[in-house]
């Protein structure tokens, strides 16, 4: 028939087909996969409790109750503070799209002004952690000796308090029954800080007496320093440790070498 049909028994045909299949599925996935929500939110200025209340009743009250006192489907928000609202809504975790073991990071549904209003409203219900001062969410840049020291201290605090869940490089990790600690790259310093003080979902609270605001700032700076660190060794394979390295050795290391061996054993044209 045609050229394609005569080559269907060629030894490379399977490899070509596999590659084609992978390309198509991979391409389709990257096209269809949900794009990362841009969770950037700058410091809000206006705090209009009344406007926040309206927004709350319209968007949140169905789960948290009209007075935010909590219902069967959502916890009470009295005393959770503005930090909690800014984190949950500012990263798109709230409003929750559907019941799940854990609220995933999602597309942010409100603008900065609305989030600030919601936060102001919830903060007015009872005392709780406030949105952090900007001086503590400013990243300490490496360069000077004291800054470097602060970053190194942040690393020590991170390894003792955070790495067990979020992994050594902040790549995230598994918890029980489908819950997980999310990856930390791309999270804004403010949201990191707010997560520490408010303890969202499974995360414990790290109050200011446990980790002082300065310590939190050091942790954040360490994470950002790692994020901006050049990949000295090349491709990081997701910073997942030996599992991804082993996989790479099997698939690519062995794959390439077997490819060479096949070429070596094949008779020349």
């Amino acid at each position: 028939m045609n050229a394609l049909a005569t080559r269907r028994r060629h030894p490379a045909a399977i490899a070509v087909l596999l590659l084609l299949g992978l390309l198509v599925t991979g391409g389709a996935y990257s096209f269809l996969a949900p794009k990362d929500a841009n969770a950037a939110a700058s410091a809000a200025a206006a705090d209009d409790v009344a406007k926040g209340k309206d927004l709350f009743i319209a968007n949140c009250a169905s789960c948290h109750g009209v007075g935010a006192q909590g219902t069967k489907s959502g916890p009470s928000l009295v005393g959770v503070g503005a930090a909690s609202v800014d984190f949950q809504v500012g990263t798109g975790r709230m409003p929750l799209a559907g019941p799940n073991v854990q609220a995933p990071q999602n597309k942010v549904k409100f603008d900065d002004e609305q989030i600030a209003a919601l936060a102001a409203f919830v903060a007015s219900l009872g005392p709780g952690p406030a949105i952090p001062e900007e001086k503590y969410t400013t990243v300490i840049e490496p360069g000077t000796p004291e800054n470097n020291k602060a970053i190194a201290e942040g690393g020590e605090i991170f390894r003792v308090n955070c790495a067990m869940c979020h992994n050594f490089a902040g790549a995230g990790g598994a918890l029980t029954r489908g819950k997980y600690a999310p990856a930390l790259d791309g999270v804004t310093p403010r949201h990191m800080y707010e997560a520490m003080v408010s303890g969202p979902q499974s995360m414990p609270v790290f109050n200011d007496t446990n980790l002082t605001p300065e310590s939190k700032q050091k942790v954040i700076s360490y994470l950002k320093a790692q994020e901006n660190q050049t990949n000295v060794g090349g491709l990081t394979l997701g910073n997942l440790g030996p599992v991804s390295e082993g996989l790479f050795a099997w698939v690519f290391g062995l794959g390439i070498l077997i490819g060479c061996a096949v070429w070596l054993g094949k008779k020349a044209a």
């Binding site: 003792v160 609270v205 790290f206 109050n207 007496t209 446990n210 310590s215």
Partner: peptide, 21 residues
């Protein structure tokens, strides 16, 4: 003492939901 800072911990500093190493 807090790890790694080695500072003592007051009872009232341990708020609900907190975890100290």
């Amino acid at each position: 003492m807090r790890d790694p800072e080695m500072t003592p911990i007051r009872f009232d500093e341990v708020t609900s939901g907190s975890v100290f190493h």
